[in-house]
Design a protein around this nucleic acid. Structure first.
Lengths: 335, 335
DNA sequence: ATGAAAGCGCTAACAA
DNA sequence: TTGTTAGCGCTTTCAT
């Protein structure tokens, strides 16, 4: 192991000088800076993370808590996790991966062990047990998703209410009069993860505003659930010509079933999906969709949490504006 | 922050005693152990990770390197990552998440900074640049996947050759004579990630052995790719009655297309999937499949790497035995 | 612009 | 069975 002391000797300076060259916390003459940098490269020096953390009281690590049970669409979670990791590296930080399995005690453990300077939580529930701990330990933290009471917390999420409104508006603009919202599994609603309810609320509001008659149904992830949900919807409301789908896993099954049952998309029924762009593009027909900006959510969470850890104030609520991309799955409603 | 010294004072013992109570590295009288443990709980003490790493030269962290570009089915990656994390906790270790974006230099950085005691690599290519670094730094490491030359490395993977053979055998047993293997996208083969080639090799071998006539086609992930691949296959070999699919993303599209084109599963064509169980169970019909044991791969990788980090020798090659579960998508071949 | 030196909180000899 | 103590490698005051 190469130590800072060895670098100092090699460069003919004192240890503190090397330290300051690395941290940039005081001005160094061009000359010594260069010598030190050359020594660092030559010896292949990397600061010892533990020693640094001990002396400076900052670990340069962000903890990321991912859900065990997977309400969220897994590829979205993964994209967020990767965005968090690559963004963190831009701040010279690393990411510690935690699962919600360990429960609220993980918060205490991380906060007290100095393992991480900040936390990002990905599976926030409306009434999350960990939130009081976060507040009380004063940990720099960002939540991806919204709890019931975000006061004093830093949260990032897609504006799902606006998403619901956007989808309703698009269908109304196209002249549809009867529509349905197909959401995630019922268990997701019961667990109060929030995003599904918020989409529903926005959709309901705008549907009302625009005089749309609408139905809402949760839907499981498999083929059977999808075809069951679909047939029940059309049985109950044969006049439905517009579908909004917030369930990536069910999407291919839903589309297959639609095709199977002789309903052409978009001629007979228009589909608006709430999903990542690549899912929309890999479907047939390519789906008109509101994209879930996973990458941006991860990036923003890191930026916010870095600001907090540096002692700067951070915005309380960052709601990303949804964008609807019109593709081939939505068309004019009944003439 | 509560320190070990405070705990010692509170319990009326010396710091080293507290340390030894925690590490279990020397015997402690029942009495003092209890007193110390009570103090720890009462004060809410957690050892400072950095200090511990500095003094002991062990960070209690495992680095997990995940691929950026996603050849592997994302939910499988995620399941492995989660299994690694939860298993690591059982060994009192945490997991540091790295992406392959940082490149081979990440290996050096981690090895030299003492950030992690061991590494698990998930996106191993046949000729992986990082392998020489691993060898040369002597880092305790486990690879998930097989490189071209695994000599001296610790690797964990599903036995994909056996998987290919198993699928071929199942179709042959059912009396099928003409079959096709639908694999991942061509780019995956070109990148030489290995698993696809190995399945193909096993399948080819056993198909030969059993007198099966067979075709192999890569297939993109979307609906268009799936239906194109499928129609080209049946155009070229109308007599095909058995399909092996190693492409989770294309699976729903493939099944939809089969239904669409009037081929009943399993009456007209049998389908054997290589995929996680939940994908097989969420399809219609439920798929006969060889399951990808993501969880077990993650667990094993951690166990192996922990053995290595402790200085014990570890097996060089751990190939998990594939298991085929017969469900509803495979039936008798042409009579 | 640079150096000297005192810790940061813990582990692991060495002693008893 | 327990205590004493010398570092681990780095940051950061305090000097110069």
């Amino acid at each position: 192991m190469v130590t800072l002391a060895q670098v100092a000797r090699h460069a003919g300076v004192s240890p503190s000088t090397v330290s300051y060259v690395i941290s940039g916390k005081r001005s160094i003459s061009q000359d010594t800076r260069l010598r030190v940098e050359r020594s660092i490269a030559e010896l292949g020096y990397h600061p010892h993370a533990g020693a640094r953390a001990l002396a400076s009281n900052r670990s340069h690590v962000i903890a990321l808590v991912v859900p065990l049970r997977t309400d969220m669409f897994v590829p979205v979670m993964m994209e967020i996790a990767i965005a968090v990791t690559t963004t963190a590296r831009r701040y010279a930080h690393d990411v510690l991966l935690l699962t919600s399995e360990e429960g609220p005690s993980a918060i205490k453990r991380i906060a007290n062990s100095g393992l991480a300077d900040a936390m990002i939580l990905m599976d926030v529930e409306l009434e999350d047990e960990r939130i009081p701990l976060l507040r009380q330990t004063g940990t720099a933290a960002a939540l991806i998703g919204l709890p019931a009471d975000p006061a004093g917390l830093t949260c990032v999420d897609l504006d799902f209410e606006a998403t619901g409104r956007l989808a309703a508006d698009h269908l109304a603009d196209l002249g549809h009069r009867e529509v349905a919202l197909i959401g995630p599994a019922e268990s997701v609603y019961r667990r109060h993860t929030g995003f599904a309810e918020r989409t529903l609320a926005g959709f309901r509001q705008q549907a009302g505003e625009r005089g749309l008659r609408f139905l809402h149904r949760p839907c499981g992830d498999g083929h059977e659930a999808a075809s069951g949900t679909l047939s029940r919807i059309f049985e109950e409301r044969p006049g439905i010509t517009g579908l909004v789908v917030q369930n990536e896993a069910a999407l291919p099954h839903l589309l297959g079933q639609l095709r199977q049952s002789g309903r052409a998309v978009p001629e007979d029924v228009s589909v608006v999906a709430i999903c990542p762009d690549d899912v929309a593009l890999h479907s047939a027909p390519r789906l008109t969709s509101v994209s879930v900006p996973a990458k941006e959510m991860g990036q923003r969470a890191v930026e916010l949490v870095m600001a907090l850890a540096a002692g700067h104030p951070a915005e309380e609520l960052t709601l990303l504006t949804p964008a609807l991309t019109i593709r081939e799955s939505s068309g004019p409603g009944p003439r």
